[in-house]
């Protein structure tokens, strides 16, 4: 079996290498890929969309339809993880650990037990309990606002520097996940509950598709942002730039929410009570 697989893989590699003999040279500015469609993007994207970053212009305007489906792919992944992993059964876990805030005494409640009275003085801690680490918690709390600010900067500056919705959304999601890792899952869930992540992820894609739908209802083709000129009160070219920005916001919201939702589902194995 191993030899057969090796043969198949080598055959595949040989076929690909055979194909490369007719490739244009690497970095050749006169290759077909560099001279057919892309010169139009390079020459005309600034005057047609008022966005200096050509990659963003192509991503969100010329090939914006692909990007809408890309956002739906990420939404589908979040939905799929939720569908596959989420455990709704209200079965009590085998044992829960509680810590008395004032004295630091830890209690273990076995299955079927009840929490002692004065429960507000106790806080729930994870089964794989790690000692309270002042340095990690304080450092993360200090750093988090800057990470989130940077994420918003990346989203907003997608027009002028490398960036955009996906990149900014992932950074923002990473900030939330950092909070979940340095503190615990339950406090993150209080900050950003599960229901809000699902609503945000669906809402982000709806912003994108809704923008296209508005263009359609205004009489133009789907995702033709120039039709938004009337609503936004600018000329059609600036309307394209604003349209790109609106859909990038939608993408950022959706990606951030899905990253967080994926983490919630995978780290707590669907139970949403304890994390990593």
């Amino acid at each position: 079996m191993k030899r057969f697989a090796l043969l198949a893989v080598l055959l595949f590699g040989a076929l690909l290498v055979y194909g490369t003999t007719d490739f244009p040279d690497w970095g050749d500015p006169s290759s077909p890929a560099a001279t057919h469609v892309s010169p139009h993007y390079i020459r005309h994207s600034l005057e047609e969309t008022a966005v200096p970053n050509i990659v963003t212009a192509v991503l969100a305007d010329y090939r914006g339809y692909d990007t809408m489906f890309e956002t739906s792919v990420i939404f589908t992944a979040g939905l799929a993880c939720f569908f596959l992993l989420r455990v709704f059964a209200r079965k009590a876990p085998d044992s829960r650990l509680y810590r008395h805030r004032a004295t630091g005494i830890t209690l273990r409640i076995e299955q079927g037990g009840r929490l002692p009275e004065g429960a507000r003085e106790f806080e729930r801690i994870d089964s794989q309990w790690v000692p309270y680490d002042l340095i990690i918690r304080t450092a993360c709390r200090l750093v988090l606002p800057f990470i989130q600010l940077f994420a918003l900067y990346v989203v907003a500056h997608g027009h002028h520097s490398p960036g955009g919705g996906f990149q900014g959304g992932v950074i923002f999601g990473a900030a939330v996940i950092l909070y979940a890792i340095s503190h615990d899952l339950r406090s993150t869930l209080q900050m950003l509950p599960e229901r809000r992540t699902v609503l945000m992820s669906a809402g982000g894609v709806l912003i994108y598709a809704g923008t296209g739908l508005i263009c359609l209802l205004l009489g133009a083709q789907f995702l033709d942002y120039a039709a938004l000129a009337g609503i936004l009160g600018v000329d059609p070219i600036m309307a394209r730039s604003h349209g790109i920005f609106i859909v990038e916001i939608g993408v950022a919201i959706a990606v951030m929410a899905v990253m967080v939702s994926l983490y919630y589902n995978l780290a707590s194995v669907g139970r949403f009570d304890e994390g990593l």
């Binding site: 739906s72 739908l213 083709q221």
Partner: peptide, 24 residues
């Protein structure tokens, strides 16, 4: 005239709306 786009976009948007409605 917009059927080619609508036939793909409406199930897509409906899926998002269903995901929201499932909670509401």
């Amino acid at each position: 005239a917009h059927f080619p786009a609508l036939i793909v976009v409406s199930p897509l948007m409906a899926a998002m709306v269903v995901a929201i409605l499932a909670w509401v």
